[in-house]
């Protein structure tokens, strides 16, 4: 087994691991993710019907509504949030939900973006991935 590490920009510190859930399509959490169940519900999305709970959720970026942060916060309250989030470029809108979740429910969701290699091409859904982010550095680690 080979360990492969992709360096990223750390946005929210923490360490988490889980099976990857990977998409090349941007996603809108409002109307696109049901926080009660963790199921993706966005119309025409390639991950529609999949569940984000406990996954390392890899998607390019968020889009659309400014309610995204509230959906993430509620998913933390309901225990359906992803374990970690990896983006090509993270929107502030998403990070805020995670920051407040940490303050309100003491649950950390590490977030990294700007990976040195495109994780959407390298990581397949279901592969076990670890995300590690500190104030100064971040990486995604996968076993291949």
């Amino acid at each position: 087994m080979k360990l492969s590490r992709i360096l990223c920009n750390p946005l929210l510190s923490g360490v988490a691991s889980g099976p990857a859930l990977v998409t090349s399509q941007p996603i809108c959490f409002w109307g696109g993710l049901d926080p009660k169940t963790g199921t993706i519900t966005e119309r025409d999305h390639e991950l529609k019907g999949q569940n984000v709970a406990g996954t390392v959720f890899v998607f390019p970026t968020g889009k659309g509504s400014s309610t995204t942060s509230a959906i993430l916060l509620e998913s933390v309250r309901c225990g359906t949030a992803p374990a970690a989030i990896v983006n090509l470029k993270t929107e502030p809108i998403l990070v805020i939900g995670a920051i407040i979740a940490e303050k309100l429910y003491d649950r950390v969701i590490p977030i990294v973006d700007t990976p040195e290699r495109d994780p959407i091409k390298v990581i397949k859904s279901g592969e076990w991935v670890e995300v590690n982010a500190s104030e100064t550095q971040g990486w995604i680690q996968l076993r291949k």
């Binding site: 400014s66 995204t68 942060s69 916060l73 502030p92 809108i93 990070v95 805020i96 939900g97």
Partner: peptide, 8 residues
């Protein structure tokens, strides 16, 4: 304004 997230 930036695109303020809920709570920001």
């Amino acid at each position: 304004t930036i695109r303020c997230a809920d709570f920001v």
